[in-house]
Design a protein around this nucleic acid. Sequence first.
DNA 1: AGTGCGATTGACT
DNA 2: GTCAATCGCACTA
Length: 177
Amino acid sequence: MIGKTLVHETSAGVISGRIVETEAYVTGDAAGHAYRGLSRRNQSLFLKRGHAYICFVYGAAHLLNVSSDEAGVGAGVLIRALEPLEGIELMESVRGTSRPLDLARGPGRLFSAMWLDESQDGFDLCTGKTLWLGEAVREVGPIGVSTRIGITKDADRLLRFYEKSNKFVSGPRKLNS
DNA sequence: AGTGCGATTGACT
DNA sequence: GTCAATCGCACTA
């Protein structure tokens, strides 16, 4: 998914960004929200690949995932950072900052910057008309791999991916080297 | 019914 | 670099 775009057509205008960092949450993964089986909260992870799964963590931030397996299998990819492309002034207004690096670096930040909300949980991102995943706008650089950020279970698995030396990637320098 | 904690962020030193 | 805020959900009793 890295290099592809996330596009949202809002009533105020188009907002889009280039995906530069992701994490995978696979089947049998103790860190994944689907680990304990289907529930109301995580049901969108069990949709066919390409649907949005939106969750709320720490009483503080929403996160956007894309389901990534067959219907009935709970797996997904967390989008962790975007390089802003279109609608930057809309991102700035909702984020309350004009610093480019603070707009969509981090999963909670990009969720806010893209003007998303919980009503988009379960949305089909492949056929959607207002919110969808678009093709890459340019060539993708070398991809780095690391452990995932902010988890405690299955923490050693190398399931975080990022475009190396893209400055919009989140995380400590140590993980990104 | 009560409790603990998480796929984070922003403010502050 | 450290640290508290904050709330829905899963787990225990």
